[in-house]
């Protein structure tokens, strides 16, 4: 069933170009998105991905958590990560 996560299948370049070999879709990520995607692919949780973003980027005065949530939602829409009915990161 195509609604499974494609996270492990992705081809990701160092510059942030992403190819999903299951659907044929391509994406270009900025640095923040690349950090989050690599973290999720390494099996880290959403909270751990957020910590990595905060460690790498200046986030003071900015709701980085909301940005991570929004980005993960986009990944779900593209079936790159599995949709979690309870809202958590699977």
């Amino acid at each position: 069933m195509s609604k499974q996560s494609h996270l492990r299948d992705l081809a990701i370049s160092e510059s942030g170009f992403v190819f999903d070999p299951v659907t044929g879709a391509t994406f270009t990520l900025n640095g923040t998105g690349l950090v989050i995607l690599q973290a999720l692919r390494a099996g880290k949780t959403r909270a751990e991905a957020l910590k990595l973003v905060e460690a790498e980027y200046e986030t003071e005065g900015h709701d980085a958590g909301a940005d991570v949530d929004e980005f993960v939602l986009q990944l779900e829409r593209h079936d790159i990560v599995a949709r979690d009915p309870e809202g958590g990161q699977s």
């Binding site: 299948d9 070999p21 299951v22 659907t23 044929g24």
Partner: peptide
């Protein structure tokens, strides 16, 4: 997956996928 179509809807570019 077709990535580019002609005005007749024919594939002008595509990429091999594995689903």
């Amino acid at each position: 997956k077709k990535t580019l179509l002609t005005d007749k809807g024919k594939g002008w570019a595509g990429v091999a996928v594995r689903d």
